[in-house]
């Protein structure tokens, strides 16, 4: 049975890793040889060649890294705080089921507000937070990401805390366990896979919303903001260097999540 499992896992890694990798390399080759430009009728000025993008990343690495850190702090802090906030809402909804459903609907409604509308409001809110424009902007951006990441966590965690296997609550009640014990021994561990379901949505979302929130920030910093600034100035190779870096941030954060998930959930089905 074990051998069977590992061979199917091997086959799975071919389809999930090798095929996309092959496809990526194919695109890269077409792009570099300008076949892509011919096919799609694009000017290499607007879509610079991979080699050019790569050399720009090499040349201005220190400046790029400063912007990467700015974006990463916003994305990660917003993700963690938003997920924590979402989980707390799920706990409240579990403890008070009568308010629960309503509360979660409000969270979902908040989630539907576009960042374009949200960002200026929050920037206005946070204008007195600090005299330093960088810190002020960062707080505003983190709040945007936080609000974006709250909904998926609260909805999924609520399911994890309340959708229990048949009889699993009866079991603890037959041991005369109280509500808190049931929470600690059953609901909490039961919600762990659901936390990861939420994070699979909110990790990419945190990167995207960090990038977009930078567009509207007072202080000019971050990968997203650099993409915009450089496109406005017609510096497409530099803009594409930042686009590449933005993709890498997303991929690395998602990979970290998948590794954590495979370690923490290794014994579960």
């Amino acid at each position: 049975m074990k051998r069977n499992g590992s061979s199917s896992r091997f086959r799975q890694s071919i389809t999930t890793v090798l095929y996309p990798l092959f496809f990526g390399i194919l695109i890269l080759v077409l792009w570099q040889t300008q076949a892509l430009h011919a096919m799609l009728n694009i000017d290499p000025f607007v879509l610079p060649l991979p080699s050019r993008i790569n050399s720009i990343i090499g040349e201005s690495l220190p400046k790029i890294m400063t912007n990467v850190w700015a974006t990463l702090i916003v994305a990660v802090a917003g993700l963690l705080l938003g997920s924590l906030f979402g989980y707390l809402i799920a706990i409240v909804a579990t403890v008070f089921p009568k308010w629960g459903a309503g509360g979660l609907s409000i969270v979902t409604a908040f989630n539907a507000i576009p960042i374009v509308a949200l960002a200026p409001v929050i920037t206005n809110w946070t204008k007195d937070v600090s005299s330093d424009a960088n810190i002020r902007s960062m707080v505003a951006k983190i709040i945007v990401v936080l609000l974006m990441c709250t909904a998926s966590m609260s909805l999924n965690a609520y399911r994890g805390l309340t959708e229990l296997r048949p009889f699993s609550q009866d079991l603890l009640e037959s041991y005369a366990a109280g509500k808190f014990t049931i929470f600690r021994k059953l609901r909490l561990p039961n919600s762990v896979p659901y936390i990861f379901t939420a994070l699979r949505v909110s990790v990419p979302l945190s990167v995207i919303s960090a990038l977009v929130s930078e567009y509207f920030a007072e202080y000019v910093i971050g990968v997203g903001r650099q993409i915009r600034e450089n496109i406005v100035l017609g510096q497409y190779p530099t803009a594409w260097a930042y686009i590449t870096v933005a993709c890498l941030i997303g991929i690395v954060m998602y990979a970290v999540l998948i590794v954590c998930e495979s370690i923490l959930l290794r014994h579960r089905k």
Partner: peptide
């Protein structure tokens, strides 16, 4: 009896916690 844990219960499904 429940508070004094005088009985043990076995259910229709094993109800083992998978974690």
């Amino acid at each position: 009896a429940r508070l004094q844990k005088k009985y043990g219960m076995v259910f229709q499904s094993p109800v083992l916690y998978e974690w």
